[in-house]
Amino acid sequence: MSTAAPGLLASVTDLHEMELARAGGADIVDLKQPAFGTLGAWSTDALAAAVMLWTAWGEQLGEAGRPALSATIGDQPMVPALVRTAAERVARTGVPLVKIGLSASQHTNECIEALAPLASRTRLIGVLFADEAPDFAVLAALGRAGFAGVMIDTADKKAGSLTEHFDPLTLGQFVAEARRHGLMTGLAGSLRLEDIPALVGVGADYLGFRGALCEGGRTGTLDPVRLGQVHARLREPSDH
């Protein structure tokens, strides 16, 4: 059977890269600072400027013509008050999709519950980490708390890419379970151009990229040519 091609999430570090990602066909422009950690966050002022640019795109291109916008809250310990404060800081800037890393911890469910009030007014995306043996039972908690979606990423970028931790079958189970709880899905974690054919068939809504789009790896600069290659590969017909 043929599956719809997953959307392209491109992580960017500044307003110039935002423009490159939009021009290159990204479906979600994701604001992240890889130099500051796995889910390193933009400053509040920078987020406000990004929201202004994104709003201007809407005026120029219309709602349908602009990509979605997401931002990470930074690498936070699993302390409910800290996670909620960090998520609210990002949400207050007007970023429509707020990404929250959920590390393996006995307090993860408490953090999810603490975010439920915010989830009722902002679209929250939980991020699980493939290299931390995530418990997919957390998907039910995300659904109950009103999260909009969930991604699997990798925390330690030196410990291998997503495909080295999970095979397509396991990722397919993750996607199916997330859908059961009303969550949109994304896969990321040092994904390369050659990973795309196997992952397209998994059926996730989005595939996320940073290093594969950059000259000099994930802390390098976004390269429009590499972005174009990833975009084209995602759009190739698939027999999956």
Rank of each mutant, 00 (worst) to 15 (best):
E88K: 08
E88Y: 06
V90K: 01
V90I: 11
V90D: 02
R92G: 12
T93I: 09
G94S: 09
V95A: 04
V95K: 00
V95N: 01
L97A: 02
K99A: 06
K99I: 08
K99Y: 09
I100D: 00
I100Y: 01
I100Q: 00
G101D: 06
G101H: 05
L102H: 04
S105M: 12
S105Q: 11
Q106F: 14
H107R: 13
T108N: 08
T108S: 13
C111N: 06
E113N: 14
L115F: 05
L115T: 02
P117A: 08
P117C: 08
P117R: 07
P117F: 07
L118A: 03
S120R: 15
R121P: 06
T122K: 04
R123E: 13
G126H: 00
V127T: 10
A130W: 03
D131C: 12
E132R: 11
E132L: 13
E132F: 10
P134E: 07
P134V: 06
D135V: 10
F136M: 11
A137C: 13
V138R: 07
V138A: 11
A140V: 07
A141T: 11
L142I: 09
L142F: 10
R144C: 09
R144F: 06
A145V: 05
A148Y: 12
A148F: 13
G149R: 00
G149Y: 00
V150H: 00
V150D: 00
D153I: 07
D153Y: 07
D156K: 14
D156E: 14
K158D: 14
E164V: 14
F166T: 02
F166I: 07
F166G: 00
D167G: 15
D167A: 12
P168N: 12
T170S: 15
T170N: 11
T170R: 15
L171S: 03
L171R: 01
Q173C: 15
A176I: 07
A176P: 04
E177W: 04
E177Y: 06
A178L: 03
A178G: 03
A178I: 01
R179F: 02
R179N: 09
H181K: 05
H181A: 03
H181F: 11
L183I: 03
L183D: 00
T185A: 06
G186V: 01
L187W: 05
L187R: 04
A188Y: 04
A188L: 10
L191F: 08
E194Q: 15
E194A: 14
E194H: 14
D195R: 07
D195Q: 11
D195L: 07
I196K: 02
I196P: 00
A198L: 12
L199S: 04
L199E: 03
L199F: 09
G201L: 07
G201E: 08
G201P: 06
G201T: 10
V202N: 01
V202E: 01
G203R: 02
A204F: 02
A204Q: 03
D205Q: 04
D205C: 05
Y206G: 02
L207N: 03
L207D: 02
G208V: 05
G208R: 01
F209D: 02
G211H: 08
A212M: 09
G216M: 11
G216F: 10
G217T: 12
G217V: 12
G217F: 11
G217D: 11
R218P: 06
R218E: 10
T219E: 13
G220P: 04
G220Y: 05
G220F: 05
T221C: 15
D223S: 13
D223Y: 09
